[in-house]
Computed example of a mutant assay.
Amino acid sequence: MTNPRLRPPEHRVAPRAVLMWTLSGLAGTAVVTALLAGAAVLIRLGGWAWLPGPVVEYAWWPAACYAVYGAVRSLVAPRWRYRVHRWEVTDDVVYTRAGWISRAWQLVPVSRIQTVDHTQGWLERMFGLATVEVRTASHAGSSTIEGLRADVARELSERLAVRAGELRDDAT
């Protein structure tokens, strides 16, 4: 018996996912930066005499640092994520690879699938994307594929549900 080698799954997510992830990251960065900037304004103008002078004088630094960090993260992470995140479904297994620093390879036997969820958040709908969640009895055996084209996600979830029904065994 030969040991099969772990290879990258065949399919990438939809290229539009990069733009969606970028905009989502930038929006989150803008919110947190605005909150930090608001706190800096309150500290500087609020007469917080009990704070040490340097704290008041440099109160804007956290907002500036987070804005730079968030912008870089929002521009780099989605592109890296697109290059790394992959998925593949065969007759017997759902195979995913995720993670942009630490990599997670996950193989979910189709015979163990209990539910297949096809979801679309409002931002995903704007970009014509969707998420497929494959769940087993074990949380560790569950898998999520984000950033799929909506039609691919719908077809995939239907195909997995039918195939899991065909392979149903007593997994308890």
Results as ranks from 00 to 15, higher is better:
T2M: 07
P4R: 13
P8K: 07
R12K: 15
A14L: 04
A14N: 15
P15K: 12
R16E: 15
R16G: 11
T22M: 09
S24G: 15
G25E: 03
G28C: 12
A30R: 05
A30E: 02
T33L: 06
L35I: 13
L36R: 10
L36G: 05
A40Y: 03
V41F: 05
I43V: 14
R44I: 05
G46H: 02
W48Q: 01
W50E: 14
W50C: 08
G53A: 13
E57L: 14
Y58H: 09
W60M: 04
W61R: 07
Y66G: 02
Y66L: 08
Y66K: 01
V72F: 09
R73F: 13
L75M: 00
P78V: 06
P78Q: 09
R79Y: 10
H85E: 13
V89F: 02
D91Y: 02
D91F: 00
D91V: 02
D92P: 03
V93A: 08
V93P: 02
V93D: 10
G99K: 03
A104Q: 11
V108L: 12
V108M: 03
V108E: 12
V110Y: 00
V110D: 00
S111E: 15
R112F: 06
I113D: 01
Q114L: 03
T115Y: 01
H118M: 06
Q120A: 13
Q120V: 12
Q120L: 06
L123D: 08
M126A: 12
F127T: 05
G128V: 07
A130N: 04
E133C: 04
E133M: 11
T136I: 04
A137I: 08
A140K: 09
A140V: 08
G141D: 10
G141M: 12
G141V: 11
I145A: 04
D151H: 10
V152P: 11
A153R: 09
A153W: 08
R154L: 10
E155N: 05
L156S: 01
S157K: 09
L160G: 08
E166Q: 14
R168W: 13
D169S: 13
T172D: 13
T172F: 02
